[in-house]
Design a protein around this nucleic acid. Structure first.
Lengths: 211, 211
DNA sequence: AGCGCTTTGTAACAAATGTCACATAGTAAT
DNA sequence: ATTACTATGTGACATTTGTTACAAAGCGCT
C-alpha cells in the first residue's frame, strides 16, 4: 500500500535499493486538511516526502505577519527542512496541509549516508533545492514586479492547479492572510475580477472561470 | 598565492585532499568592479568560489525590470549556478562584481564526484543551499513586510557591511534600479533619512552615520 | 568664466493600497 | 421565524508609492 504509492511517484526517481531502504526506515503519516506539519523554529528530525495531497509553505516574521511562499505537491520534498535536519538548525517556515495528505518521513541519520550511496538521491536532493530556489525566485518576482490584482489572480489559479479544482473553498480573509494584505482589499479586487468575467463569487467559495 | 587564499577561507571547510584537488582543477579569475560574472540564461560550466571581494546577485523579469536578491561574500558560492551546472539547466539570475573580486571556478565534472568522495564537500554544498534559501527568505520578508523607507535603510546598511565601508559610492538612480523603484522615490526617502540624522548625502556618495 | 553633462531636490499630481465604518447577505441553531 | 454569527460589499478617506516636469547644484573641460 505504502510501497505502491512510493513506487508510483518515486520509482522513476530512485533506485530499487533506495526504495527498499525508504520503505524500511520511512515513517508513514497521514495529515488532515489544515494540520500543522512543521512550525516556525522546529528542529527537524528528518525530511518529509509528499506522497499525496498538497502542503502550503508559509513564512512568518517576528510580528506574526504571514506570507505564503509556495505549495508542495506529490513528489516534492521540503528543502528547508532538509537543511534544518542535516545541520541541526531551526526551520524558518511553517508547513500546513492544504488538504488531506500522506507523507513518508525520512530520518535524518540516513540523509547523508544516502548521498554517498545513491546517485539518484544526490540528484533528488540537488533537484529539490533547485526547484525550491526557483520557486522562491518566482515568489520574489511576484512580490517585486506584480500589482495586487495580478498577484491575486495568480494566487487563485496557482492554488486551483495545485488542488486540482476549479472551485476554491476559502474566504476573503484567508486569502488576505496568505497574501499579507487586508480583507477589504481582497474583496475589492475579487469583485473586480468577477466583473471582468474571470471568476464567480459565492459565500465561502470562488469559482474560477478563466485560466 | 592562490593556495594561500584558498587556505585562508576554506582550510577550515574542506579536507586537505579536496583543497589539493581544487588547486589542481580550479580556474582562478580576477573580476573588476562592475564586471559581469553570470548572465540571465547562461548555462554554467561550473561554479565559482568567492575568494575575495563581493558579488551582487540580481533577478530580472521578462520586461527587463531588475531587483537585487542578495550579495555574496568571500567564502560564499553561488547556489543557483550550482544548480544550473549540475543539471545543465539555465541560470535564472545575473551576477555582477560589486568591487574588484577574485574567484576560483570549479568545473562541473567534479561537482558530483566530490559529493561522493568528500564529506566536507557535501556539507559545503548543503550549507550553501541553506544559506541561499535563508537569504531568499529574508529578501521575501523585506519585500512583503517592509515599507520603502525601511527597505532603503536596510539596503544601505547591508551594502555597507558587505563592502566594509561606511561610505557608499553610488547614485540615487543605481539604488532605484536595485530596489526596483524610481529615482525620485529614492531621493525623497534618502532626504528623509538625512533629516533623521541616519545618513549624510553628497554627490555620488552616501555616508552612513548610524547602523 | 562659460558650456555641457550628470546628479540631486522638489512641487504637484496620479495611482495603488490600506483603514475605518457600517450595511447587507447567508447560514446554522433554537 | 428569530437570533447570533460569519462573510461579503461598499463608500469615504488616509497613506504610500509612482510619475511628470523642471530647477538647481556639482563637476569636468576648454
Amino acid at each position: 500500500m505504502i510501497r505502491e504509492k512510493l513506487d508510483k511517484f518515486y520509482s522513476f526517481v530512485f533506485e530499487k535499493e533506495l526504495l527498499d531502504e525508504i520503505e524500511q526506515v520511512g515513517i508513514y503519516k497521514k495529515l488532515r486538511d489544515g494540520e500543522l506539519l512543521v512550525d516556525l523554529g522546529d528542529q527537524m528530525k528528518g525530511v518529509p516526502l509528499l506522497l499525496e495531497g498538497a502542503i502550503k509553505i508559509v513564512r512568518e516574521d517576528k510580528k506574526g505577519e504571514e506570507i505564503l511562499l509556495y505549495f508542495l505537491e506529490k513528489g516534492d520534498t521540503c528543502a528547508s527542512s532538509f537543511a534544518s535536519a542535516i545541520s541541526n538548525g531551526k526551520c524558518g517556515i511553517r508547513a500546513i496541509a492544504e488538504k488531506d495528505s500522506e507523507i513518508i518521513f525520512l530520518p535524518k541519520e540516513k540523509l547523508d549516508e544516502w548521498l554517498v550511496k545513491y546517485k539518484s538521491w544526490r540528484n533528488f536532493v540537488i533537484d529539490s533545492y533547485n526547484i525550491r530556489l526557483n520557486e522562491m525566485m518566482e515568489t520574489i518576482d511576484t512580490l517585486a514586479f506584480m500589482k495586487m490584482d495580478e498577484r491575486l489572480y495568480k494566487y487563485l489559479t496557482d492554488k486551483a492547479q495545485i488542488l486540482r479544482e476549479t472551485t476554491l473553498n476559502t474566504t476573503h480573509q484567508d486569502i488576505a492572510y496568505d497574501m499579507h494584505t487586508s480583507r477589504v482589499v481582497i474583496s475589492r479586487l475579487l469583485k473586480q475580477l468577477e466583473n471582468e468575467g474571470k471568476i464567480r463569487l459565492y459565500r465561502n467559495k470562488i469559482e474560477i472561470l478563466e485560466f
